[in-house]
Nucleic acid binder design. Structure first.
Lengths: 254, 254
DNA sequence: TGCGTTCGTGCAATATCATGCAGAGAAGGA
DNA sequence: TCCTTCTCTGCATGATATTGCACGAACGCA
């Protein structure tokens, strides 16, 4: 693994999890803590993160803000959500992931008169669709993973394998030409992989900051997905690496 | 756990609960009280909290007096919810039903330091407990019954039979001396019956308007439940028919 | 006042940190 | 090919930070 890749991974981790612990990183990457600490020192010198005893925090994050989650890009996400809602046909069974983009999609759906079945492992999505008369909701049970508020674990996977959705809208942390789709948590990755395997079509909701990013746990390679849904405002140089690999791109928004 | 994370957790706890007790914190984080006290001293030196004997309070009274985010509940529902929360012991596995009283109970729980596992078939309850670090949440999957927003059906029942909660707080539509516990929907009744069968103890959350009422579908007879949790403000003539049948009554509130 | 709890400080043990140094391997020129 | 140079990595070392325990003082409650 290249040094720059390692540093990028550290920054990714900081973005998705909000903290990095030197010891954990050294175990995960099978490198000495010295090497990780060196990286952290250098990244701190560049102002890209904030060094603390035992690890590092994002550069900007103040102590009092630590527990808060990171902010979103509303315009981008809303356009993607609306376009995704438009891809659903009456009578279809749709799987919705967790995450802010998926919740935005559920809210978009709630504003339509679509007749469909939505399967989800996110209670937030279920609550967002509660008031919609035309949409039947199926909830996947299991242990609730607090960080992203979706169910995971053996129970979730078992339930998922008994359903065959027509289309799956997947949210991820990173979408990379070489490393494929990645997310920050192993359990989540397993659940997403199971859903994708069951679904006739998998569409990845790709807001701008995800393109080119890599996170710790691999979900599926790029050739396992059917299309990437990106905002039209997204710069071409972020998208080109994927088109040249033959990934189908769907543009959202005006 | 990083030191800064611990301090952030203390500040977060102060904001959400309004106080921190050194001893409780040390038990929860499995650290000595000295370490917690040191954190409290340092945070107090930075002006981020106010030190008091035994623990700490938010820095300014103004912060503590901020209007609570919680919705105002009718008095006796809130009293029942609070009393129910008090019946839960650390380490127990608790099943929470759907319904307004159960959601009020979840919100009461969210204001405590309790360590417990909450199993529920209500996404609303899951969302209400999302921010609580000490509570592990297990969600029961299945078809979402829109009217009351809980999962029902074969999948739900199957999942329920694999769990054995210590205590089940049941919400119903009607509680009648002769007809027992009733609810408005056949599927819901089946789910409640299954949960009650699995649970070591079943407690019925009995707000005043339910006493003496009857609904279409029978859940279980009165002799299958362990106690009826009623508000202290509830008139005795509503309760007497149940005491004379030998039902154990727990009074909530001052 | 008496008693148990909590507090603060000093101290020792452990964990983490920064720096210097040496070996392994890659890059590049002779 | 051989050699030099450079980078990366892990280890050793001394410095610093964190943690838990001990002990006497302060505090709160009855």
């Amino acid at each position: 693994m290249l040094t720059v890749e390692r540093k990028a991974l550290i920054l990714q981790r900081l973005e998705s999890v909000g903290r990095v612990v030197a010891k954990e990183m050294s175990l995960e990457l099978e490198l000495s803590e010295d090497t990780i600490r060196r990286d952290l020192r250098e990244l701190a010198a560049e102002g890209l993160l904030q060094r603390v005893h035992g690890g590092a925090l994002p550069a900007s994050k103040a102590l009092a803000d630590l527990p808060t989650r990171r902010k979103v890009q509303p315009a981008d996400k809303a356009a993607i959500a609306k376009a995704a809602a438009g891809m659903i046909k009456n009578g279809q069974t749709v799987f919705l992931d967790g995450g802010t983009t998926a919740i935005a999609l559920a809210r978009s759906l709630a504003a339509t008169d679509l007749q469909a079945t939505v399967v989800t492992h996110s209670p937030d999505v279920a609550v967002a669709l509660h008031a919609h008369g035309g949409v039947e909701v199926e909830l996947i049970g299991g242990r609730l993973y607090k960080h992203s508020n979706v169910t995971v674990g053996a129970v979730a996977i078992e339930e998922i394998t008994s359903i065959r959705p027509d289309i799956y809208f997947m949210g991820v942390t990173g979408i990379h030409p070489e490393y494929g789709l990645t997310t920050g948590n192993r359990e989540e990755a397993a659940v997403k992989r199971a859903i994708s395997r069951q679904s006739a079509e998998t569409v990845v909701l790709a807001s701008r900051e995800k393109l080119g990013a890599v996170s710790a746990h691999s979900v599926v390679p790029l050739d396992q997905i059917d299309s990437l849904l990106v905002a039209r405002s997204c710069p071409p140089d972020l998208i080109d690496p994927f088109t040249s690999l033959g990934v189908s791109i769907v543009h959202a928004g005006a």
